[in-house]
Simulated assay, not measured.
Amino acid sequence: MMSTIPEPLTTELIEQAIAWRRHLHRHPELSFQEHETSRYIAGILESFGGLEISRPTPTSVVAKLIGAHPGKTLALRADIDALPIEEEAPIEDASRNPGVMHACGHDGHTATLLAVAKLLSARKEQLRGEIRFIFQHAEEMPPGGARELVAAGVMDGVDWVVGEHLASLLPVGQIGIAYGEMMASPDNFTILVKGYGGHAGSPHRAVDVIAIGAQIVTNLQHIVSRNADPLERLVVSIAQFTAGASHNVIPDQAIIKGTVRSFSTEVREEAERQIERIAGGVASAHGASIELDYVYGYDPVVNDEGLTRTIEAVLVETFGRDAVVHQPPSMGGEDFSAYQRVVPGTFFNIGAGNVDKGIVYPHHHPKFMIDEEALQNGILAFVKIAEHLLEWNRD
C-alpha cells in the first residue's frame, strides 16, 4: 500500500471500504442465497444517488452510472457469494454464520467496487459514456451467476468488462496480470462403481467395489501422463472416494468424485471420453460396472490481448513497473469467462498476502485472510482503468 492516499481516493473512502468489507465478512451467504448481501449492497448504492439500480436476478445487483457526455460502456464486476467452510481465521470480524465463510475474498471484491461506485458517481458530470457496476451472485457454484446475468441482458451494449481478484498468495502491493489464457475450465465428474456386496471374510463371493475403485483411481492418472499431449495443460484430480459403512461388510457401491482442468475444448472432451473408457474397462474386467456423470463447468478465462495491454500500461503508470508482474495461467476456475464470451474482457489479481501478518493461506482455506491494505490498490486500479478507457475513447 502506498504511504499516502493517492488522488482521487480519500482516507474516508478507504476506511468506509474496510468497514463494508468487515460487515460482509461477518455475514457471508452461499451461492444463490445472497439475499441479505444483495439487499445490503443495493441500499448502499442507493445512498450514493445518480445510479440506476436493478436486480437482474433475486440475489444480484447492477448499478448503471450514465455520464453527462456520450461515449463507450465499461462493465466492472465483483462477486458476492461465500463458501461452505467453517472459519478458523484469528480475526475479530470472523463469520457469524456457522459453516459459511468468505474464504475467497469476495467480501473484499464487493467493498472495492462499492467504493469505486461511490467515488465515480460523484463525478458523473465528467464521465463520457457509461460505467456498469455488476455485483454478481454465485461465482462459486456452477453453472454460475455470470451466465445468468449475461442471459438477463446485463452485458448488452457493453464495450469492455474488467474484473479483479484479491490474491492471498501474491504479496500486497503487487498486481498480477496474464495475457490470453489465465484460468482453466473446472469440470467435475462422479463415477458410481456398482458391484456385489458381501461378507468381508468371503471376498470371493462379492464383487469388491473398493478394490476395483482403487484401481480406477490409479489408472485415471494415465490420462495426463500417457493419454494427453504433454504440451497441453491438463489436470485430472480425484478428491473423494466414498464406500462402505462397516469394517466387515464389502459394499455394493462406491462413489469416486474428481475434477478435470484444461484450457481446450478438445482436451476436456477427450478427458471425459478417457475417464469413461478407463473406469468402465477396469470395472468390466472385474465383473463390475460404472455410471459416469460428467459436468462441464465454466469456460476458461482468456484475457483479451489488446485490452490487457492497455490495462497493463495503466497499472504500470499508476503503481510502477516493479509492482506489475506477469503471472502464468492458473488451473483454478472463474465464471468471469461468461462475460468474456460476449465482450472483450480482462481479469487480473490484486496482491493481498502478507507473510509478516500471517496472511499466507490459500483461497478456500479455513484460515484464509487478506491484508486490507489491498483494498486501496483494488479501488485505485479500477478507477484509473475506468478513467483511461472512457476518456481515451472520447469522440
Rank of each mutant, 00 (worst) to 15 (best):
A313R: 15
P98F: 12
G173I: 04
L234N: 03
H388E: 10
F241I: 08
V295G: 04
K257H: 00
H102E: 09
K124Y: 09
V342W: 08
Q376S: 10
G378E: 07
L170D: 13
A75I: 00
N248W: 01
G105I: 11
I370V: 12
G144C: 01
S31A: 14
G49L: 06
W392H: 14
L170R: 13
H23D: 12
I290L: 00
W392V: 02
D299T: 11
A17N: 02
V342A: 06
L9I: 01
A89D: 09
H363P: 00
N377D: 09
S246D: 10
T259P: 06
P58A: 12
D107V: 12
D356G: 08
G351I: 04
L76M: 11
I370P: 03
S38M: 04
A146S: 09
P366E: 11
H286S: 15
G163C: 06
I85K: 04
P90N: 04
F241Y: 14
R55M: 03
V62F: 07
G297F: 03
I5K: 02
V224H: 01
V267K: 02
V383K: 08
E139Q: 13
D293V: 14
R268Q: 07
R128E: 15
E34I: 04
Q240E: 12
G157K: 14
D156E: 15
Y179H: 13
N227W: 07
I53M: 09
L24N: 08
A151T: 13
F382M: 08
